[in-house]
């Protein structure tokens, strides 16, 4: 175990936010779930007793009918804001006094940094470069993330859980978000920071970051694994164009795994929407457009881990190779 290596990465001033995230995200997830389970218990109680549901305050907060329902912003909210501002300022002061912002050598296009890493909040995208070409990892995926986040309110047909923490009433939405946010965004950042060393190679925690290490890539494309060489298509082509047969064959071949994936993953996400009695009830409320959008984004989201597994476990580089782009 090379503890020094771990320490060096974890204590780099610019990586402090990620180390902080490692604590903050589990904490706030716990904090939210703690309240969600409390509310769920209350929901169970009220569902079992409709008479009580009519009179109950319906919150886990203490309540006395004599109390005012609202309090004055001044001072009851503003004093909290003041305290928060002071605490943040103190934290920032202490952080800034104890840790210096990094400053490397002056920029020099002739001396490459190894590893050359994007700022930590974009490391998830940089990690995606391993699995996808830059046009997907750097352009299509960020666009899909932004659009995908923005459609959430319009495809979530579940009216429950508006304005309170709950797990029971929103299982599907919560799992999907946790999968995307923690599994695909934060986890990729953590991998990009702690696991990826020189040459963007995979170094387990405790392994020394060896800049001399060479990796023999045996990655192949799916068509190579299946031995697609275009001989069958060459027979059908005019003799002058036979040289293009392998390219054409690859283009045609690659369409099939993609169609297969969309069919299987699409069916899988459709099943997800129909998983429980409750989800079927919500499904009934969805319009066709909502259903199609939800399933499309689920399919696209799932394609990330699928490609990661294809690449890391089966050493597949591309599924579909064309002269213009490859996926």
């Amino acid at each position: 175990m090379n503890w020094h290596q771990i320490w060096e990465v974890a204590s780099a001033p610019d990586n402090v936010p990620i180390v902080a995230l490692l604590f903050l995200i589990p904490f706030y997830t716990w904090y939210a779930f703690h309240q969600a389970l409390e509310n769920d218990a209350l929901i169970d109680k009220l569902s079992a007793d409709p008479a009580l549901a009519k009179t109950e305050y319906r919150k886990t907060e203490p309540w006395n009918p004599k109390w005012e329902k609202e309090v004055h912003t001044w001072p009851y909210l503003m004093r909290i804001e003041l305290v928060a501002a002071i605490l943040v300022t103190v934290l920032l002061m202490v952080w800034s006094i104890t840790l210096n912002a990094p400053l490397e050598e002056p920029s020099n296009p002739n001396v490459t940094m190894n590893p050359a890493k994007a700022p930590w909040y974009f490391l998830g995208l940089q990690e995606m470069l391993v699995y996808f070409d830059p046009w997907i990892a750097g352009v299509i995926m960020p666009t899909l993330i932004i659009v995908g986040l923005m459609v959430i309110p319009y495809i979530d047909a579940n009216p429950l859980g508006n304005g309170y923490y709950t797990y029971k009433q929103r299982k599907f939405a919560i799992w999907t978000f946790l999968f995307g946010f923690i599994g695909l965004w934060v986890l990729m950042i953590v991998i990009g920071t702690f696991i990826r060393g020189p040459g963007w190679m995979w170094f387990w925690p405790g392994q020394t970051w060896d800049a001399q290490r060479v990796e023999f890539a045996v990655n192949r494309n799916l068509d190579q694994i299946f031995g697609v060489n275009g001989s069958w298509i060459a027979h059908l082509m005019p003799a002058a164009n036979v040289a293009y047969a392998p390219i054409l064959a690859r283009i045609i071949f690659g369409v099939f795994p993609l169609i297969l994936y969309f069919l299987v993953a699409g069916y899988f996400s459709h099943r997800l929407l129909l998983l429980t009695d409750f989800s079927r009830k919500i499904f009934k409320r969805m319009t066709l457009l909502q259903m199609v959008t939800t399933e499309l984004f689920l399919v696209l989201m799932l394609s990330l881990p699928i490609k990661i597994i294809l690449r890391l476990v089966f050493r597949v580089k591309y599924v579909w190779v064309t002269p213009w782009f490859s996926i």
């Binding site: 610019d14 402090v16 936010p17 902080a20 995230l21 903050l24 995200i25 706030y28 939210a32 969600a36 943040v88 934290l91 920032l92 002061m93 952080w95 800034s96 006094i97 840790l99 210096n100 912002a101 930590w120 909040y121 959430i152 309110p153 979530d156 009216p159 429950l160 859980g161 508006n162 304005g163 309170y164 923490y165 709950t166 929103r170 939405a173 919560i174 978000f177 946010f181």
Partner: peptide, 30 residues
């Protein structure tokens, strides 16, 4: 310089946690 740098990092963390909270309370709904 340190304060500007670390406040920027902190702001990103705070935005993400804000979004996380808004999602988990279903506050994006109608």
């Amino acid at each position: 310089r340190n304060m500007h740098r670390w406040a920027a990092h902190l702001m990103i963390i705070a935005v993400w946690l804000h979004m996380f909270r808004v999602f988990l309370t279903g506050s994006y709904k109608r």
